[in-house]
Amino acid sequence: MAAIKRTIGERAFAVFNYVFMTVLCILCLYPMWYVFCAAFSDPAYMYGSRGILIWPYAPYNVKGFQLVFTNDYIISSFLNTLFYLGVGTFLNMFLTTLGAYSLSRQNCYWNGKIMKFIAFTMYFQGGLIPFYLMVKNMGLLDTYSSIILPVLVSTWNLIVLRTAFGAVPVSLEESARLDGANDWTILWRIVFPLSQATVAVVTLYYAVYWWNNWFNPSIFLQTKAKYPLQLLLREILLQNDASMTSGANMSMVGQESISQYKLLVKYCVIVVATVPILVTYPFLQKYFVKGVMIGSIKG
């Protein structure tokens, strides 16, 4: 009797759950869908109306994308972002793992103190000026290193990973020690694989940071050839706005209106900045979910 009742409640909940999730998905998806539609729509139409779009408004066009891709640096900045993302995330993960492992060990005299020392920096920073001077004095201005080195470890991620490492049962570690394993082996053979889910999350956090990174590059880089994609896209966005008001590139898009393209380019830039990550993400998610699964089985 009780069992049946519960099933009804559960069923009702399941139905609610699915309906809720569907609504949520629509809510999350629609603005992006709107942007996609807008990017391919007729600029003259988009220009005048701000109503609801279900499908791109004909005549479809790709002129906005042409405008974005006429930029000479788009390919190099894309490669740069891949470089920053690859090298940066790898170094991030390596150092963060080391730090998180060390700081998650129990009974170490200094760990609590080091943790305080680190957490303090989340709240107090010297500010931009000394930070800039630091990079400058090290001779790193306008180098790839100036982008990667100052953000090797993110305290937030370190704390997240440390919490996960701390949750690995001590018994496993102890038995490994009896087998003669040292800390290095324990980290990479036991703790790291067992926390795979969180490791995956933290990696993802870092990767997304690198994908979206523009502020530090905007301070430290001079050479456009070293710009990451987001900084360049930001420039395109602003540049198109500014130059179109000046009337300078009137001839660039022909006799149709330039102002219309202002909007269009904006939408196209969003698409360019978002599509690569959206396209790759589901593939990554497969591994990511697998990691979560492995973690759950072993944990």
């Binding site: 150092l95 730090g99 920096t121 920073q125 500010g127 000394p130």
Partner: peptide
Amino acid sequence: MVLPVLAFYIIWCYGPMYG
């Protein structure tokens, strides 16, 4: 193992703190 992390914090977080 924690040494490189500590070095990072000393150089990049505490270094500019005089600001």
